[in-house]
């Protein structure tokens, strides 16, 4: 079944319960919804905020491509991915991915896949704003993020369920 992923790149916050309701409405075959939300942490009190920069136009497109790959790989009936930009303070949402399917495993795997690819392929960059308001520099990409992608290519030969 062809699904149309819901992709949004926005400054404003989002409501996870509302996104679940929107994603599942009109899909009575959905039996499992997995959501992941990434939240800004305060790093032990040293962080006042993150300033998220993105590449307008490309960001939506890159996330949509990732979502379409997930839809090809697992029998998903709904996908939502929302990424915020601008200033985000500790405790606030940064990102949401949602994958819905008839059964839980595809929903779990689909959401994990979306998140792993989003971290390394979607054009967003985080700048740290220190507790005293000074520029804390750009967050460095982690090698572990690239390694997270490897497991999906290693699992490529596995049977889809």
């Amino acid at each position: 079944m062809a699904i149309k992923p819901v992709i949004r790149v926005q400054r404003d916050d989002f409501d996870i319960a509302r996104e679940i309701a929107l994603a599942t409405a009109g899909h009575p075959g959905i039996g499992a919804v997995v959501t992941f939300s990434g939240i800004c942490r305060d790093d032990g009190g040293s962080l006042a905020a993150l300033e998220l920069e993105h590449y307008p136009g490309m960001a939506e497109r890159a996330i949509n491509e990732i979502a379409l790959q997930a839809a090809e790989r697992w029998p998903l009936q709904a996908i939502t991915a929302i990424h915020r930009y601008g200033r985000v303070e500790p405790g606030e949402n940064i990102v949401l991915v949602l994958a819905a399917s008839a059964h839980r495993q595809a929903a779990f795997d689909g959401a994990a896949f979306l998140m792993d690819f989003l971290k390394s392929k979607a054009p967003f960059w985080k700048k740290l704003i220190a507790a005293d308001g000074s520029d804390g520099g750009w967050v460095d990409a982690k090698e572990s993020d690239d390694e997270a992608l490897q497991r999906w290519s290693a699992a490529e030969g596995f049977e889809r369920s």
Binding site: L52, H83, I94, V95, L118, K119, A122, F124, D140, A141
Partner: peptide
């Protein structure tokens, strides 16, 4: 053409 560092979203 866009030039940028490795991405750090999510």
């Amino acid at each position: 053409i866009g030039l940028f560092p490795p991405m750090t979203g999510g």
